[in-house]
Design a protein around this nucleic acid. Structure first.
Lengths: 138, 138
DNA sequence: CTTGACGTTGACGTAAGCGTAAGCGGATAA
DNA sequence: TTATCCGCTTACGCTTACGTCAACGTCAAG
Protein backbone atom coordinates (compact mmCIF):
# COMPACT_ATOMS: atom_id res chain seq x y z
CA UNK A 1 0.00 0.00 0.00
CA UNK A 2 2.65 2.48 1.04
CA UNK A 3 0.34 5.41 1.50
CA UNK A 4 1.71 8.91 1.76
CA UNK A 5 0.27 11.95 3.49
CA UNK A 6 0.20 15.70 3.27
CA UNK A 7 1.02 17.79 6.26
CA UNK A 8 -2.60 18.81 6.53
CA UNK A 9 -3.85 15.26 6.75
CA UNK A 10 -1.51 14.49 9.56
CA UNK A 11 -2.32 17.64 11.50
CA UNK A 12 -5.96 16.61 11.40
CA UNK A 13 -5.37 13.02 12.25
CA UNK A 14 -3.22 13.81 15.24
CA UNK A 15 -4.57 17.20 16.24
CA UNK A 16 -1.28 18.99 16.02
CA UNK A 17 -0.40 22.09 14.04
CA UNK A 18 1.73 22.14 10.92
CA UNK A 19 4.17 24.24 12.86
CA UNK A 20 4.62 21.34 15.22
CA UNK A 21 5.40 18.84 12.47
CA UNK A 22 7.85 21.23 10.83
CA UNK A 23 9.43 21.80 14.18
CA UNK A 24 9.90 18.08 14.68
CA UNK A 25 11.56 17.99 11.31
CA UNK A 26 13.90 20.84 12.21
CA UNK A 27 14.78 18.92 15.33
CA UNK A 28 15.56 15.84 13.29
CA UNK A 29 12.78 13.61 14.58
CA UNK A 30 11.28 13.05 11.16
CA UNK A 31 12.51 13.58 7.62
CA UNK A 32 9.68 13.58 5.11
CA UNK A 33 10.54 13.67 1.42
CA UNK A 34 9.87 16.67 -0.75
CA UNK A 35 7.95 17.07 -3.92
CA UNK A 36 9.41 20.41 -4.84
CA UNK A 37 9.06 22.37 -1.64
CA UNK A 38 6.15 20.41 -0.33
CA UNK A 39 6.57 17.79 2.29
CA UNK A 40 5.41 14.27 1.59
CA UNK A 41 5.03 12.09 4.65
CA UNK A 42 5.43 8.34 4.32
CA UNK A 43 3.83 5.65 6.44
CA UNK A 44 7.13 5.43 8.26
CA UNK A 45 7.05 9.14 9.03
CA UNK A 46 3.54 8.70 10.29
CA UNK A 47 4.57 5.82 12.53
CA UNK A 48 7.32 7.98 13.94
CA UNK A 49 4.90 10.77 14.65
CA UNK A 50 2.76 8.36 16.62
CA UNK A 51 5.77 7.42 18.71
CA UNK A 52 6.74 11.05 19.16
CA UNK A 53 3.33 12.05 20.40
CA UNK A 54 3.12 9.13 22.73
CA UNK A 55 6.55 9.95 24.06
CA UNK A 56 5.42 13.47 24.66
CA UNK A 57 2.34 12.40 26.53
CA UNK A 58 4.36 10.32 28.91
CA UNK A 59 6.66 13.23 29.59
CA UNK A 60 9.75 12.59 27.52
CA UNK A 61 11.67 15.53 26.11
CA UNK A 62 11.97 15.68 22.35
CA UNK A 63 15.69 15.12 22.63
CA UNK A 64 15.07 11.84 24.44
CA UNK A 65 12.47 10.82 21.93
CA UNK A 66 14.84 11.54 19.08
CA UNK A 67 17.48 9.45 20.73
CA UNK A 68 15.13 6.51 21.03
CA UNK A 69 13.94 6.86 17.46
CA UNK A 70 17.52 6.94 16.30
CA UNK A 71 18.22 3.82 18.27
CA UNK A 72 15.50 1.98 16.42
CA UNK A 73 17.30 2.87 13.22
CA UNK A 74 20.83 2.09 14.32
CA UNK A 75 19.43 -1.27 15.17
CA UNK A 76 21.63 -2.83 12.52
CA UNK A 77 24.88 -1.24 13.59
CA UNK A 78 27.90 -2.79 15.25
CA UNK A 79 28.11 -4.47 18.62
CA UNK A 80 28.99 -1.31 20.46
CA UNK A 81 26.09 0.57 18.96
CA UNK A 82 23.75 -2.26 19.67
CA UNK A 83 24.79 -2.59 23.29
CA UNK A 84 24.47 1.14 23.70
CA UNK A 85 20.96 0.95 22.32
CA UNK A 86 20.12 -1.85 24.71
CA UNK A 87 21.33 0.19 27.63
CA UNK A 88 19.31 3.21 26.57
CA UNK A 89 16.22 1.09 26.12
CA UNK A 90 16.60 -0.25 29.62
CA UNK A 91 16.98 3.23 31.00
CA UNK A 92 13.75 4.29 29.39
CA UNK A 93 12.17 1.13 30.67
CA UNK A 94 13.07 1.92 34.25
CA UNK A 95 11.98 5.49 33.94
CA UNK A 96 8.61 4.39 32.65
CA UNK A 97 8.21 1.78 35.34
CA UNK A 98 8.86 4.45 37.91
CA UNK A 99 6.30 6.68 36.26
CA UNK A 100 3.78 3.91 36.19
CA UNK A 101 4.05 3.55 39.94
CA UNK A 102 3.68 7.31 40.40
CA UNK A 103 0.61 7.26 38.24
CA UNK A 104 -0.97 4.38 40.08
CA UNK A 105 -0.43 6.13 43.38
CA UNK A 106 -1.93 9.30 42.00
CA UNK A 107 -4.91 7.38 40.69
CA UNK A 108 -5.56 5.90 44.10
CA UNK A 109 -5.52 9.32 45.69
CA UNK A 110 -7.72 10.91 43.09
CA UNK A 111 -10.28 8.15 43.40
CA UNK A 112 -10.22 8.50 47.14
CA UNK A 113 -10.76 12.25 46.87
CA UNK A 114 -13.68 11.81 44.53
CA UNK A 115 -15.28 9.16 46.70
CA UNK A 116 -14.94 11.42 49.68
CA UNK A 117 -16.56 14.31 47.88
CA UNK A 118 -19.43 12.09 46.85
CA UNK A 119 -19.91 10.93 50.41
CA UNK A 120 -19.99 14.49 51.67
CA UNK A 121 -22.44 15.54 49.03
CA UNK A 122 -24.65 12.57 49.76
CA UNK A 123 -24.98 13.69 53.34
CA UNK A 124 -25.55 17.40 53.68
CA UNK A 125 -22.23 18.27 55.26
CA UNK A 126 -21.52 21.10 52.94
CA UNK A 127 -24.61 23.02 54.07
CA UNK A 128 -23.26 23.46 57.53
CA UNK A 129 -20.08 22.42 59.28
CA UNK A 130 -16.99 23.76 57.59
CA UNK A 131 -14.30 21.13 58.08
CA UNK A 132 -10.56 21.26 58.01
CA UNK A 133 -8.75 18.45 56.34
CA UNK A 134 -5.37 17.18 55.39
CA UNK A 135 -3.33 16.82 52.29
CA UNK A 136 -2.86 13.07 52.66
CA UNK A 137 0.22 11.52 54.28
CA UNK A 138 1.23 12.94 57.63
CA UNK B 1 4.81 14.97 66.43
CA UNK B 2 4.39 17.84 64.01
CA UNK B 3 7.99 17.94 62.87
CA UNK B 4 9.30 20.91 60.97
CA UNK B 5 12.13 21.11 58.47
CA UNK B 6 14.75 23.49 57.15
CA UNK B 7 15.11 24.07 53.48
CA UNK B 8 18.38 22.19 53.52
CA UNK B 9 16.86 19.06 54.98
CA UNK B 10 14.23 18.96 52.33
CA UNK B 11 16.63 19.55 49.46
CA UNK B 12 18.60 16.55 50.66
CA UNK B 13 15.60 14.37 51.24
CA UNK B 14 14.13 15.03 47.83
CA UNK B 15 17.24 15.81 45.82
CA UNK B 16 16.09 19.21 44.69
CA UNK B 17 17.84 22.55 45.03
CA UNK B 18 16.82 25.29 47.41
CA UNK B 19 16.18 27.42 44.37
CA UNK B 20 13.53 24.94 43.33
CA UNK B 21 11.71 25.04 46.65
CA UNK B 22 11.80 28.82 46.73
CA UNK B 23 10.53 28.85 43.19
CA UNK B 24 7.59 26.64 44.13
CA UNK B 25 6.84 29.09 46.88
CA UNK B 26 6.94 32.04 44.49
CA UNK B 27 4.54 30.14 42.31
CA UNK B 28 2.21 29.61 45.22
CA UNK B 29 2.53 25.85 45.50
CA UNK B 30 3.74 25.92 49.08
CA UNK B 31 3.75 28.54 51.80
CA UNK B 32 6.18 27.69 54.59
CA UNK B 33 6.17 29.85 57.68
CA UNK B 34 8.99 32.19 58.56
CA UNK B 35 11.13 32.54 61.61
CA UNK B 36 12.47 35.94 60.78
CA UNK B 37 13.57 35.56 57.21
CA UNK B 38 14.15 31.87 57.40
CA UNK B 39 11.68 29.41 56.00
CA UNK B 40 10.25 26.76 58.28
CA UNK B 41 8.61 23.87 56.48
CA UNK B 42 5.83 21.95 58.23
CA UNK B 43 4.87 18.33 57.70
CA UNK B 44 2.06 19.62 55.54
CA UNK B 45 4.49 21.55 53.37
CA UNK B 46 6.55 18.42 53.08
CA UNK B 47 3.54 16.38 52.04
CA UNK B 48 2.77 18.95 49.40
CA UNK B 49 6.30 18.77 48.08
CA UNK B 50 5.93 15.05 47.70
CA UNK B 51 2.80 15.58 45.65
CA UNK B 52 4.46 18.29 43.59
CA UNK B 53 7.42 16.13 42.71
CA UNK B 54 5.25 13.18 41.87
CA UNK B 55 3.11 15.42 39.70
CA UNK B 56 6.20 16.61 37.92
CA UNK B 57 7.40 13.10 37.29
CA UNK B 58 4.16 12.16 35.63
CA UNK B 59 4.36 15.19 33.42
CA UNK B 60 2.00 17.72 34.94
CA UNK B 61 2.79 21.40 34.62
CA UNK B 62 3.31 23.30 37.84
CA UNK B 63 0.15 25.29 37.14
CA UNK B 64 -1.88 22.09 37.01
CA UNK B 65 -0.28 20.81 40.15
CA UNK B 66 -1.05 24.03 41.95
CA UNK B 67 -4.64 23.79 40.86
CA UNK B 68 -4.98 20.30 42.23
CA UNK B 69 -3.28 21.20 45.49
CA UNK B 70 -5.64 24.14 45.86
CA UNK B 71 -8.57 21.85 45.29
CA UNK B 72 -7.53 19.69 48.20
CA UNK B 73 -7.75 22.79 50.36
CA UNK B 74 -11.01 24.17 49.03
CA UNK B 75 -12.40 20.82 50.00
CA UNK B 76 -14.57 22.49 52.63
CA UNK B 77 -16.05 25.18 50.44
CA UNK B 78 -19.56 25.52 49.05
CA UNK B 79 -21.38 23.19 46.72
CA UNK B 80 -20.20 24.91 43.58
CA UNK B 81 -16.59 24.82 44.67
CA UNK B 82 -16.89 21.21 45.66
CA UNK B 83 -18.45 20.15 42.39
CA UNK B 84 -15.81 22.04 40.52
CA UNK B 85 -13.17 20.22 42.47
CA UNK B 86 -14.81 16.91 41.68
CA UNK B 87 -14.79 17.74 38.01
CA UNK B 88 -11.15 18.69 38.03
CA UNK B 89 -10.23 15.55 39.89
CA UNK B 90 -11.98 13.47 37.27
CA UNK B 91 -10.15 15.29 34.52
CA UNK B 92 -6.84 14.49 36.11
CA UNK B 93 -8.02 10.95 36.58
CA UNK B 94 -8.72 10.52 32.88
CA UNK B 95 -5.50 12.15 31.87
CA UNK B 96 -3.58 9.78 34.08
CA UNK B 97 -5.48 6.76 32.85
CA UNK B 98 -4.60 7.77 29.33
CA UNK B 99 -0.98 8.13 30.31
CA UNK B 100 -0.99 4.78 31.98
CA UNK B 101 -2.07 3.18 28.73
CA UNK B 102 0.61 5.04 26.81
CA UNK B 103 3.18 3.88 29.28
CA UNK B 104 2.08 0.29 29.13
CA UNK B 105 2.27 0.35 25.35
CA UNK B 106 5.70 1.88 25.49
CA UNK B 107 6.81 -0.73 27.97
CA UNK B 108 5.70 -3.51 25.66
CA UNK B 109 7.66 -2.03 22.80
CA UNK B 110 10.77 -1.42 24.81
CA UNK B 111 10.73 -4.97 26.14
CA UNK B 112 10.25 -6.26 22.64
CA UNK B 113 13.16 -4.19 21.39
CA UNK B 114 15.41 -5.45 24.16
CA UNK B 115 14.42 -9.04 23.60
CA UNK B 116 15.13 -8.66 19.94
CA UNK B 117 18.53 -7.20 20.58
CA UNK B 118 19.34 -10.07 22.90
CA UNK B 119 18.27 -12.56 20.29
CA UNK B 120 20.45 -10.94 17.67
CA UNK B 121 23.41 -10.82 19.98
CA UNK B 122 22.90 -14.43 20.94
CA UNK B 123 23.20 -15.43 17.31
CA UNK B 124 25.96 -13.59 15.50
CA UNK B 125 23.85 -11.52 13.20
CA UNK B 126 25.63 -8.33 13.98
CA UNK B 127 28.91 -9.66 12.67
CA UNK B 128 27.61 -9.88 9.15
CA UNK B 129 24.34 -9.12 7.45
CA UNK B 130 23.29 -5.54 7.90
CA UNK B 131 19.52 -5.56 8.06
CA UNK B 132 16.94 -2.89 7.46
CA UNK B 133 14.03 -2.79 9.78
CA UNK B 134 10.91 -0.91 10.57
CA UNK B 135 9.75 1.44 13.22
CA UNK B 136 6.77 -0.66 14.28
CA UNK B 137 3.30 -0.33 12.77
CA UNK B 138 3.05 -0.24 9.03
C1' DC C 1 -8.03 36.53 -13.37
C1' DT C 2 -8.64 36.85 -8.80
C1' DT C 3 -9.83 34.50 -4.74
C1' DG C 4 -9.03 31.07 -1.43
C1' DA C 5 -7.03 27.01 0.38
C1' DC C 6 -2.77 24.94 1.27
C1' DG C 7 2.08 25.04 1.23
C1' DT C 8 6.83 27.21 2.20
C1' DT C 9 10.68 29.76 4.91
C1' DG C 10 12.38 32.92 8.22
C1' DA C 11 12.25 35.22 12.47
C1' DC C 12 10.67 36.94 16.69
C1' DG C 13 7.76 35.95 20.95
C1' DT C 14 6.61 33.36 25.04
C1' DA C 15 5.68 30.38 29.09
C1' DA C 16 7.79 27.08 32.11
C1' DG C 17 11.28 25.68 35.19
C1' DC C 18 14.77 26.40 37.11
C1' DG C 19 20.51 27.81 37.02
C1' DT C 20 23.58 31.04 38.37
C1' DA C 21 25.69 34.78 40.16
C1' DA C 22 25.78 38.96 43.28
C1' DG C 23 25.48 40.82 47.57
C1' DC C 24 24.08 40.66 52.32
C1' DG C 25 22.91 38.87 57.34
C1' DG C 26 23.53 35.74 61.24
C1' DA C 27 25.54 31.84 63.60
C1' DT C 28 29.19 28.75 64.52
C1' DA C 29 33.95 26.76 64.44
C1' DA C 30 38.88 27.56 64.53
C1' DT D 1 38.47 37.77 64.88
C1' DT D 2 38.19 35.60 60.64
C1' DA D 3 36.46 32.09 57.91
C1' DT D 4 32.84 29.22 56.70
C1' DC D 5 28.21 27.64 56.50
C1' DC D 6 23.36 28.32 55.89
C1' DG D 7 19.85 31.29 54.41
C1' DC D 8 17.71 35.37 52.04
C1' DT D 9 16.53 38.49 47.97
C1' DT D 10 16.97 40.41 43.43
C1' DA D 11 17.59 39.64 38.88
C1' DC D 12 19.29 38.28 34.59
C1' DG D 13 20.07 33.95 31.69
C1' DC D 14 18.92 29.72 29.38
C1' DT D 15 16.34 25.79 27.30
C1' DT D 16 12.23 23.62 25.46
C1' DA D 17 8.36 23.47 22.50
C1' DC D 18 6.04 25.45 20.07
C1' DG D 19 2.68 30.16 18.71
C1' DT D 20 2.38 33.80 15.75
C1' DC D 21 3.04 36.94 12.29
C1' DA D 22 5.09 38.23 7.71
C1' DA D 23 5.76 37.50 3.00
C1' DC D 24 5.64 34.65 -0.70
C1' DG D 25 4.52 30.52 -4.27
C1' DT D 26 0.91 27.38 -6.46
C1' DC D 27 -2.95 25.45 -8.08
C1' DA D 28 -7.97 24.60 -8.69
C1' DA D 29 -12.59 26.84 -8.66
C1' DG D 30 -15.65 30.44 -9.80
Amino acid sequence: MNRSFTIRQLTKEFAVTARTLRFYEDEGLIAPERRGQTRIYSARDRARIILILRGRRVGFALAEIREILDLYDVHDGGVRQTMHARKKFEEQLHKLERQKIDIEESLVELRRAITEIDARMARGIYTAQPQRQQVAAE
